[in-house]
Protein backbone atom coordinates (compact mmCIF):
# COMPACT_ATOMS: atom_id res chain seq x y z
CA UNK A 1 0.00 0.00 0.00
CA UNK A 2 1.35 3.36 -0.99
CA UNK A 3 0.75 6.39 1.16
CA UNK A 4 1.89 8.88 -1.39
CA UNK A 5 2.23 8.62 -5.14
CA UNK A 6 3.92 11.03 -7.47
CA UNK A 7 2.44 10.80 -10.94
CA UNK A 8 3.93 12.28 -14.10
CA UNK A 9 5.23 15.39 -12.35
CA UNK A 10 6.77 17.89 -14.75
CA UNK A 11 8.08 21.38 -14.13
CA UNK A 12 9.83 23.73 -16.50
CA UNK A 13 11.41 27.10 -15.81
CA UNK A 14 11.63 28.91 -19.10
CA UNK A 15 13.65 26.61 -21.34
CA UNK A 16 14.95 24.40 -18.54
CA UNK A 17 13.03 21.28 -17.64
CA UNK A 18 13.75 20.84 -13.96
CA UNK A 19 11.58 17.77 -13.44
CA UNK A 20 10.65 15.59 -16.37
CA UNK A 21 7.69 13.26 -15.99
CA UNK A 22 8.68 11.93 -12.58
CA UNK A 23 6.85 8.90 -11.16
CA UNK A 24 7.47 7.21 -7.83
CA UNK A 25 5.60 5.72 -4.92
CA UNK A 26 6.21 6.10 -1.20
CA UNK A 27 5.10 3.03 0.79
CA UNK A 28 3.46 3.44 4.18
CA UNK A 29 5.65 3.54 7.24
CA UNK A 30 8.86 3.79 5.30
CA UNK A 31 11.82 6.06 5.08
CA UNK A 32 12.01 7.16 1.51
CA UNK A 33 15.07 8.72 -0.08
CA UNK A 34 15.05 10.93 -3.13
CA UNK A 35 18.59 10.71 -4.36
CA UNK A 36 20.49 12.69 -6.90
CA UNK A 37 23.30 15.13 -7.34
CA UNK A 38 22.91 18.87 -6.86
CA UNK A 39 20.65 20.34 -9.51
CA UNK A 40 19.11 17.01 -10.44
CA UNK A 41 15.59 18.20 -9.60
CA UNK A 42 15.17 16.97 -6.03
CA UNK A 43 14.19 20.31 -4.51
CA UNK A 44 11.80 21.13 -7.35
CA UNK A 45 10.11 17.73 -6.94
CA UNK A 46 9.77 18.22 -3.20
CA UNK A 47 8.48 21.76 -3.63
CA UNK A 48 5.81 20.43 -5.96
CA UNK A 49 4.92 17.75 -3.43
CA UNK A 50 4.59 20.50 -0.82
CA UNK A 51 2.41 22.62 -3.09
CA UNK A 52 4.96 25.41 -3.10
CA UNK A 53 5.35 25.07 -6.85
CA UNK A 54 2.45 24.30 -9.15
CA UNK A 55 3.47 21.48 -11.45
CA UNK A 56 3.14 22.06 -15.21
CA UNK A 57 1.80 18.57 -15.42
CA UNK A 58 1.12 15.61 -13.16
CA UNK A 59 -0.10 15.29 -9.61
CA UNK A 60 0.67 14.05 -6.15
CA UNK A 61 -1.82 11.51 -4.87
CA UNK A 62 -2.47 10.79 -1.21
CA UNK A 63 -4.29 7.52 -0.61
CA UNK A 64 -6.05 7.74 -3.94
CA UNK A 65 -6.97 11.44 -3.87
CA UNK A 66 -5.06 14.38 -5.27
CA UNK A 67 -3.53 16.42 -2.45
CA UNK A 68 -5.01 19.82 -1.62
CA UNK A 69 -4.00 22.72 0.60
CA UNK A 70 -4.95 20.84 3.76
CA UNK A 71 -2.17 18.35 3.06
CA UNK A 72 0.29 21.00 4.20
CA UNK A 73 -0.91 20.87 7.78
CA UNK A 74 -0.24 17.11 7.86
CA UNK A 75 3.36 17.56 6.79
CA UNK A 76 6.40 18.64 8.69
CA UNK A 77 8.75 20.17 6.17
CA UNK A 78 12.37 21.10 6.61
CA UNK A 79 13.68 22.81 3.51
CA UNK A 80 17.32 22.86 2.54
CA UNK A 81 17.35 26.65 2.80
CA UNK A 82 15.95 27.21 6.24
CA UNK A 83 15.73 30.07 8.63
CA UNK A 84 13.82 31.60 11.47
CA UNK A 85 12.59 35.06 12.37
CA UNK A 86 15.61 36.46 14.12
CA UNK A 87 13.80 38.95 16.32
CA UNK A 88 11.21 36.48 17.59
CA UNK A 89 11.51 34.64 20.86
CA UNK A 90 12.14 30.91 20.67
CA UNK A 91 8.82 30.06 22.24
CA UNK A 92 6.84 32.51 20.08
CA UNK A 93 8.53 31.06 17.00
CA UNK A 94 7.40 27.55 17.92
CA UNK A 95 3.85 28.68 18.67
CA UNK A 96 3.72 30.57 15.39
CA UNK A 97 4.81 27.58 13.32
CA UNK A 98 2.28 25.41 15.12
CA UNK A 99 -0.41 28.02 14.59
CA UNK A 100 0.03 28.16 10.83
CA UNK A 101 -0.38 24.37 10.88
CA UNK A 102 -3.68 24.84 12.64
CA UNK A 103 -2.62 23.97 16.19
CA UNK A 104 -3.56 26.36 18.94
CA UNK A 105 -1.19 27.40 21.69
CA UNK A 106 -2.88 25.34 24.39
CA UNK A 107 -2.82 22.24 22.17
CA UNK A 108 0.95 22.25 21.76
CA UNK A 109 1.93 23.96 24.99
CA UNK A 110 2.97 20.74 26.76
CA UNK A 111 4.81 19.39 23.77
CA UNK A 112 6.75 22.61 23.34
CA UNK A 113 8.05 22.34 26.89
CA UNK A 114 8.80 18.66 26.42
CA UNK A 115 10.83 19.15 23.26
CA UNK A 116 12.61 22.22 24.60
CA UNK A 117 13.69 20.24 27.65
CA UNK A 118 14.74 17.25 25.59
CA UNK A 119 16.83 19.42 23.27
CA UNK A 120 18.30 21.38 26.18
CA UNK A 121 16.75 24.64 25.10
CA UNK A 122 14.24 25.11 27.90
CA UNK A 123 16.13 27.88 29.66
CA UNK A 124 16.59 29.67 26.34
CA UNK A 125 12.91 29.65 25.50
CA UNK A 126 12.50 33.38 26.13
CA UNK A 127 15.66 34.34 24.22
CA UNK A 128 15.44 35.88 20.80
CA UNK A 129 16.36 33.46 18.03
CA UNK A 130 19.25 35.69 16.95
CA UNK A 131 20.87 35.25 20.34
CA UNK A 132 21.10 31.47 19.91
CA UNK A 133 24.05 29.63 18.42
CA UNK A 134 23.60 28.23 14.94
CA UNK A 135 23.36 24.71 16.29
CA UNK A 136 20.63 25.72 18.71
CA UNK A 137 18.76 27.54 15.96
CA UNK A 138 18.78 24.29 14.00
CA UNK A 139 17.31 22.51 16.99
CA UNK A 140 14.51 25.06 17.16
CA UNK A 141 13.93 24.37 13.49
CA UNK A 142 13.65 20.62 14.10
CA UNK A 143 11.13 21.16 16.86
CA UNK A 144 9.09 23.46 14.61
CA UNK A 145 9.08 20.73 11.96
CA UNK A 146 7.61 17.98 14.13
CA UNK A 147 5.75 19.94 16.80
CA UNK A 148 2.32 19.62 15.19
CA UNK A 149 2.64 15.83 15.05
CA UNK A 150 2.62 15.48 11.26
CA UNK A 151 1.88 12.22 9.41
CA UNK A 152 4.50 12.99 6.83
CA UNK A 153 7.94 14.41 7.34
CA UNK A 154 9.60 15.80 4.28
CA UNK A 155 13.21 16.82 4.60
CA UNK A 156 15.18 18.45 1.81
CA UNK A 157 18.90 17.80 2.17
CA UNK A 158 18.40 17.57 5.93
CA UNK A 159 22.02 16.90 6.80
CA UNK A 160 23.60 19.78 4.93
CA UNK A 161 25.09 22.32 7.29
CA UNK A 162 24.50 20.30 10.46
CA UNK A 163 27.20 19.71 13.03
CA UNK A 164 27.79 16.06 14.09
CA UNK A 165 25.68 16.44 17.25
CA UNK A 166 22.69 17.73 15.35
CA UNK A 167 23.21 15.18 12.58
CA UNK A 168 22.76 12.44 15.16
CA UNK A 169 19.86 14.26 16.75
CA UNK A 170 18.09 14.45 13.41
CA UNK A 171 18.81 10.78 12.70
CA UNK A 172 17.24 9.92 16.03
CA UNK A 173 14.19 12.01 15.22
CA UNK A 174 13.83 10.29 11.85
CA UNK A 175 14.05 6.81 13.36
CA UNK A 176 11.70 7.74 16.18
CA UNK A 177 9.16 9.04 13.71
CA UNK A 178 9.46 5.87 11.72
CA UNK A 179 8.68 3.85 14.81
CA UNK A 180 5.59 5.95 15.34
CA UNK A 181 4.48 4.90 11.87
CA UNK A 182 5.10 8.22 10.14
CA UNK A 183 6.26 8.45 6.57
CA UNK A 184 9.60 10.12 6.14
CA UNK A 185 10.72 11.42 2.80
CA UNK A 186 14.08 13.00 2.40
CA UNK A 187 16.27 14.09 -0.41
CA UNK A 188 20.01 13.91 -0.33
CA UNK A 189 23.08 13.79 -2.47
CA UNK A 190 24.91 11.93 0.30
CA UNK A 191 24.61 8.29 -0.73
CA UNK A 192 26.04 7.16 2.54
CA UNK A 193 23.16 8.54 4.59
CA UNK A 194 20.59 7.27 2.16
CA UNK A 195 22.07 3.81 2.28
CA UNK A 196 22.01 3.74 6.06
CA UNK A 197 18.54 5.21 6.58
CA UNK A 198 16.29 4.47 3.63
CA UNK A 199 13.96 1.58 2.99
CA UNK A 200 12.97 2.83 -0.42
CA UNK A 201 14.61 5.16 -2.84
CA UNK A 202 14.07 6.99 -6.08
CA UNK A 203 17.08 8.17 -7.97
CA UNK A 204 16.73 11.34 -9.98
CA UNK A 205 19.10 12.63 -12.62
CA UNK A 206 18.57 15.56 -15.00
CA UNK A 207 14.98 15.71 -13.85
CA UNK A 208 14.24 12.10 -14.69
CA UNK A 209 13.70 9.23 -12.28
CA UNK A 210 16.33 6.70 -13.33
CA UNK A 211 15.81 4.13 -10.61
CA UNK A 212 13.26 3.44 -7.90
CA UNK A 213 12.19 0.73 -5.51
CA UNK A 214 13.14 -0.97 -2.29
CA UNK A 215 16.79 -0.42 -1.45
CA UNK A 216 17.25 -4.07 -0.62
CA UNK A 217 15.91 -5.25 -3.97
CA UNK A 218 17.86 -2.67 -5.86
CA UNK A 219 21.06 -3.69 -4.17
CA UNK A 220 20.35 -7.32 -4.82
CA UNK A 221 19.76 -6.64 -8.45
CA UNK A 222 22.88 -4.59 -8.93
CA UNK A 223 25.17 -6.48 -6.64
CA UNK A 224 25.49 -9.58 -8.80
CA UNK A 225 28.96 -9.77 -10.29
CA UNK A 226 30.03 -7.16 -7.76
CA UNK A 227 32.60 -7.46 -5.03
CA UNK A 228 33.31 -4.89 -2.36
CA UNK A 229 36.91 -5.16 -1.22
CA UNK A 230 39.00 -3.72 1.59
CA UNK A 231 42.68 -4.54 1.33
CA UNK A 232 46.33 -3.63 1.77
CA UNK A 233 48.66 -3.79 -1.19
CA UNK A 234 48.58 -3.15 -4.91
CA UNK A 235 45.62 -4.21 -7.03
CA UNK A 236 46.55 -2.37 -10.22
CA UNK A 237 47.11 -5.71 -11.96
CA UNK A 238 43.34 -6.19 -11.94
CA UNK A 239 42.72 -3.30 -14.30
CA UNK A 240 43.24 -5.28 -17.48
CA UNK A 241 42.57 -8.76 -16.23
CA UNK A 242 40.25 -10.83 -18.47
CA UNK A 243 37.73 -11.71 -15.69
CA UNK A 244 37.38 -8.07 -14.55
CA UNK A 245 34.88 -5.71 -16.08
CA UNK A 246 35.60 -2.60 -14.01
CA UNK A 247 37.47 -1.44 -10.92
CA UNK A 248 36.23 1.57 -8.95
CA UNK A 249 38.26 2.98 -6.12
CA UNK A 250 36.16 4.61 -3.38
CA UNK A 251 38.97 5.34 -0.96
CA UNK A 252 38.28 2.94 1.90
CA UNK A 253 36.72 0.29 -0.29
CA UNK A 254 37.14 -0.76 -3.86
CA UNK A 255 34.27 -1.94 -5.96
CA UNK A 256 35.13 -4.64 -8.47
CA UNK A 257 32.81 -5.75 -11.20
CA UNK A 258 33.33 -9.18 -12.67
CA UNK A 259 32.36 -10.25 -16.12
CA UNK A 260 30.50 -13.31 -14.81
CA UNK A 261 28.78 -13.84 -11.46
CA UNK A 262 30.51 -17.17 -10.81
CA UNK A 263 34.02 -15.69 -10.94
CA UNK A 264 34.16 -14.42 -7.32
CA UNK A 265 36.25 -17.35 -6.03
CA UNK A 266 38.62 -16.92 -8.90
CA UNK A 267 39.04 -13.24 -7.98
CA UNK A 268 39.79 -14.08 -4.35
CA UNK A 269 42.44 -16.55 -5.41
CA UNK A 270 43.93 -14.01 -7.77
CA UNK A 271 44.23 -11.47 -4.99
CA UNK A 272 45.89 -13.93 -2.63
CA UNK A 273 48.25 -15.13 -5.32
CA UNK A 274 49.35 -11.54 -5.84
CA UNK A 275 50.10 -11.04 -2.13
CA UNK A 276 47.24 -8.62 -1.55
CA UNK A 277 46.22 -8.65 2.10
CA UNK A 278 42.42 -9.01 2.05
CA UNK A 279 40.74 -7.39 5.03
CA UNK A 280 37.19 -7.58 3.82
CA UNK A 281 35.86 -9.40 0.82
CA UNK A 282 32.14 -8.96 0.32
CA UNK A 283 30.76 -10.80 -2.69
CA UNK A 284 27.48 -9.62 -4.19
CA UNK A 285 27.67 -6.28 -2.41
CA UNK A 286 27.40 -2.89 -3.96
CA UNK A 287 27.17 0.59 -2.48
CA UNK A 288 24.45 2.97 -3.51
CA UNK A 289 27.16 5.26 -4.73
CA UNK A 290 28.39 2.63 -7.15
CA UNK A 291 24.90 2.06 -8.44
CA UNK A 292 24.40 5.75 -8.85
CA UNK A 293 27.64 6.18 -10.73
CA UNK A 294 26.83 3.30 -12.96
CA UNK A 295 23.45 4.75 -13.85
CA UNK A 296 24.24 8.43 -13.97
CA UNK A 297 27.84 8.04 -14.85
CA UNK A 298 28.15 10.47 -17.72
CA UNK A 299 29.70 13.16 -15.56
CA UNK A 300 31.22 10.54 -13.36
CA UNK A 301 34.46 12.33 -12.60
CA UNK A 302 32.76 15.54 -11.63
CA UNK A 303 30.43 13.67 -9.39
CA UNK A 304 33.21 11.79 -7.69
CA UNK A 305 34.90 15.06 -6.91
CA UNK A 306 31.64 16.45 -5.61
CA UNK A 307 31.07 13.46 -3.38
CA UNK A 308 34.65 13.51 -2.19
CA UNK A 309 34.30 17.12 -1.18
CA UNK A 310 31.30 16.59 1.01
Amino acid sequence: MYSLEVKNLTKTFGKITAVDNANFEVPEGSIFGLIGRNGAGKTTTIRMMMGIYLPDNGEVVLKGAKIGPEFKSRVGYLPEERGLYKKMKVIDTLYYFAEIKGKRKNEVHKKVDEYLKRFELYDRRLSKVEDLSKGNQQKVQFIATILHDPDFIILDEPFSGLDPVNTNLLKDIILEMKQKGKVIIFSTHLMDFAEKLCDHIAMIDHGKIILKGSLKEIKQKYSQKNVSLTYNGDVSFLNHHPIIDKVENFGNTTGIRLKEANQTQELLKLLLDNNVIVKKFDANDISLQEIFIELAGKDEDNFKKEVANV
Binding site: I52, K72, L78, P79, E81, Y85, K86, F97, I100, Q141
Partner: peptide, 18 residues
Protein backbone atom coordinates in the same frame (compact mmCIF):
# COMPACT_ATOMS: atom_id res chain seq x y z
CA UNK B 1 13.28 40.90 2.20
CA UNK B 2 14.12 39.57 5.65
CA UNK B 3 12.00 36.48 5.10
CA UNK B 4 13.60 35.93 1.76
CA UNK B 5 17.10 36.73 2.89
CA UNK B 6 16.93 34.60 6.05
CA UNK B 7 15.36 31.72 4.14
CA UNK B 8 12.36 31.68 6.42
CA UNK B 9 9.99 31.93 3.58
CA UNK B 10 10.23 28.36 2.40
CA UNK B 11 9.54 27.06 5.89
CA UNK B 12 6.51 29.29 6.11
CA UNK B 13 5.37 28.34 2.61
CA UNK B 14 5.27 24.71 3.63
CA UNK B 15 2.32 25.71 5.81
CA UNK B 16 0.67 28.63 4.07
CA UNK B 17 0.28 29.39 0.40
CA UNK B 18 2.15 32.38 -1.02
Amino acid sequence: IEEKNNRIVEVVLSSVSP
